[in-house]
Amino acid sequence: MKQQAFLEKINPVKDKMYRLALRLLISKEAAEDATQEVIFKLWARKDKLKDYTNVEAFAMTTTKNYCLDELKAKKNNNLRIVHQNYENNSISLQRELEVKDEMLLINQIVDDLPEQQKIIFQLRDIEQLEFDEIIEITKMKSTAIRVALSRARKKIRESLTNKHNYGITKN
């Protein structure tokens, strides 16, 4: 496989790879390094990429495994949700602060989730991957993925509800 053909397969996926790496490794620099390392690994296996039916799923799986190996090596279990910067110039400063506080709260809640639920939540709700892609990446059964995702969403929902209810009764 030539460089141009390789880049045509990898370029559409590299942003997702970066976001997953950032989600798992926290640091932008570590995520950039991880993404670059995974791309190098994929380049080294470029001739075998044609054997994979879903190159994106293979790239995401490789990214996930690389990041988990890095976390094990560094004994770093801190994971954070990746969120898009909320850009809307017409909102008030107060609303902007409320959104920022809400995102920080969600980050804290997601940090408390078990690692498997964090990964599945990231892949499904942040990256919006299909279940068959998540199955391929995580090597888990469909029912296990759905249960983990349901539990993650329930924990997030309950924590937000409790926080907001506490804030109402407190005031």
Rank of each mutant, 00 (worst) to 15 (best):
I10V: 08
S90P: 05
A73F: 12
S142Y: 11
I134K: 02
I145L: 15
M103N: 07
N162W: 10
T143A: 09
Y52N: 11
D47C: 10
A59C: 15
S159Q: 11
W43P: 00
V55M: 09
K48S: 15
M60A: 02
S27F: 01
T53D: 15
T169S: 09
A34D: 01
Q122S: 14
C67A: 14
R23E: 00
K28Q: 07
N171Y: 04
E32Q: 13
T138F: 01
V13C: 08
K64V: 13
D51G: 11
S150M: 02
N89W: 12
I120P: 12
F40G: 03
K163L: 01
V38P: 09
F40M: 07
N11S: 06
N107H: 07
F58C: 07
K163W: 03
L97K: 04
K75F: 05
Y66C: 06
K74E: 09
Y66G: 01
R80A: 04
N78A: 05
I126N: 10
K41E: 14
I81A: 11
N65E: 10
I134L: 08
Q116I: 13
M1R: 13
V82N: 00
E8K: 14
Y18G: 06
L79N: 02
H164Q: 05
L149E: 03
Q3Y: 10
L24G: 00
F40K: 05
I109K: 03
L105A: 14
E56P: 11
T35P: 12
A152M: 11
I126S: 03
E136N: 15
I145D: 02
T169F: 13
L7H: 07
I26G: 02
A152N: 04
L24E: 00
L113K: 01
I120C: 12
R80H: 03
F6Q: 05
I26K: 03
E98F: 10
K50F: 06
F40V: 07
L49H: 02
I39R: 06
K154H: 08
K141Q: 05
L93H: 09
L24W: 05
Q108C: 02
K14V: 02
Q4G: 05
R80S: 04
R95I: 15
P12R: 05
L104Y: 14
M1G: 15
N89Q: 12
Y66L: 05
N171A: 14
T61Y: 08
K118G: 04
K155T: 12
A59R: 14
P114G: 07
A152P: 03
Q36S: 04
A144N: 09
N89R: 08
